[in-house]
């Protein structure tokens, strides 16, 4: 880590002003919401910006609210705030449980949910779970607001569908229904996960059959990945699905198409997809955190 190059910090009063600033500075500017990834990359001289637009002080972006049947988490809410929020813990425990597992307490205290999604680091814990939960990102630019699904906003490694002037203002996460079970697990040796796996299951009243499933494998490829075909294999009577877990994992891994890197070989990550899909399935149905 080198000394940071000189840059100017700007603190807009509201989202509209932030959008104007981002538009004005173009490629020379970047939104700054926590800095745990951005400043690290700048210190390693991998990224250079002359202007940082600090949205941490913009009022209203740091709220956690339950609205209708979803949870709204503001873009500048820290991972630590999610982990400790009584609301999240009560209404969507799997989200708090995931937040608790992010990096270390120093990162969690500074890093924000919006920053995490917008930096689009491929080993993101939140991105994996949010895709499984069917979360949406609310974004605002100079020309108004729009809503993007997780698979729409995350388009590649370090790459989002956001326009230069757009700011992620909140993540909306549908709360789990009584019939739904969720689990988030990861395998990690280094600083970032080797593999993350999120699973949401709809079970019937008897608890013996899965009516709908959504499995996501993250950290193994450029963006978190799910597969309709894999999810289809996770639907049916529990004992039948248990027998199909290996096939579902294979299909999911095929869709993710992991690569070799410092975290491990593609083959190993394919294998781990199977191990953790099975573990997540068991955990989701065990009644552990939703």
């Amino acid at each position: 880590m080198m000394p940071l190059r000189r840059f100017q910090m700007h603190q807009p009063k509201n989202v509209a002003e932030a959008a104007e600033m981002l538009a004005h500075y173009g490629e020379k500017g970047r939104l700054y919401a926590g800095g745990t990834e951005l400043l690290l990359a700048m210190k390693h001289d991998l990224l250079r910006y002359e202007h940082l637009v600090d949205v941490k002080t913009v009022p209203g972006l740091d709220k956690i609210e339950a609205k209708n049947s979803s949870l709204h988490i503001g873009g500048t809410v820290t991972h630590r705030a999610i982990e400790n929020s009584p609301l999240v813990r009560e209404r969507l425990p799997v989200m708090a449980e995931m937040a608790r597992q992010i990096a270390n307490v120093r990162v969690r205290a500074t890093g924000t949910l919006g920053g995490n999604i917008c930096f689009a680091e491929p080993h993101s814990d939140p991105a994996t779970l949010l895709l499984a939960l069917g979360a949406k990102a609310r974004v605002q630019g100079r020309n108004g607001e729009r809503t993007l699904a997780m698979n729409e906003i995350l388009v590649g490694a370090y790459e989002t569908a956001l326009a230069a002037d757009e700011i992620l203002t909140a993540i909306e996460i549908p709360l789990l229904a009584k019939s739904q079970r969720a689990a988030y697990l990861k395998f990690q040796v280094h600083e970032r996960p080797t593999l993350s796996l999120a699973l949401v299951l709809d079970v019937d009243a008897s608890g013996n059959a899965i009516t709908k499933a959504r499995a996501v494998v993250g950290s193994v490829s450029l963006t978190p990945c799910r597969s309709d075909k894999a999810d289809a294999l996770l639907v049916g009577p529990r004992d039948k699905v248990e027998k199909q877990l290996a096939d579902a994992a294979q299909v999911l891994a095929e869709a993710a198409d992991p690569g070799d890197d410092l975290e491990g070989s593609a083959e190993y990550k394919r294998h781990l997809t199977g191990v953790f899909l099975r573990r997540a399935f068991a955990q989701a149905l065990s009644g552990a955190p939703r």
Partner: peptide
């Protein structure tokens, strides 16, 4: 268990405490 400097070609690829475990 995990400490190992890794070279890929001519470059040390995990030469930071983020990547060197």
């Amino acid at each position: 268990l995990f400490e190992e400097l890794v070279y890929e070609g001519s470059q040390l690829v995990n030469g930071s405490i983020l990547d060197y475990r």
